[in-house]
Amino acid sequence: MNNPFRSRLSGRLSIIVVAMTTVILAGCFGDAKSWRSKDITGLMPELAFELTDASGDTVTADKTDGEIRMLFFGFTSCPDVCPATLRKLSRAVSGMPDQWQNDTRIIFVSVDPQRDTPERIKSYVDFFSDRAIGLTGEEKALRALSKRYRTTFGYDDPDAEGNYNVSHSGAVYVFDRKGNARLLFRPDLTIEDIRTDLVALAQESGV
């Protein structure tokens, strides 16, 4: 067992394997795709939800199948992130070639069902874009959906007037026509970057 030659051999072998692993791992990180946003292909499950729309009806993800969907969590009393993101998405969409505009859908999910009634959400999203729909649901359904996309939300304590802040994801999850998770828009992405990626995605899985 204690053959010195064998133990020296196994020692050298170990070092070689360590060196090779380093090289192989380094090779893994080369990215061929040139998306401007974060590519999340294969990292997240396909789009699925069961929420309530502006008219109080239940909506599932397959109702928007065939469209490029941008899922965003927020609330209508949101002072900064939500309006900024919705404005950005809406401008990116409206700057796309006409043929692709109708293939996009902004899905705004309110995680503040206490204050956000379906009507309130509708007037809110309609203000930004006609390609946007606003959804909400019971907190349990919203928790399940946010957990599915590895995010969370929380409520601050209300102030004297009953107003409270809601912490939520600032990211936009983008799904292709088949509902596969494809891209993640970080808050710092420009309108131009968003538009470029949306067009690329629309062309790629074009009709």
């Binding site: 969590f73 946010s146 929380g154 601050d156 912490s167 939520h168 994801s169 990211a171 970080r186 808050p187």
Partner: peptide, 12 residues
């Protein structure tokens, strides 16, 4: 590590 910013923190 901006993923915690992107995906929301457990509390502010």
């Amino acid at each position: 590590y901006d993923v915690y910013e992107v995906c929301g923190r457990a509390w502010p």
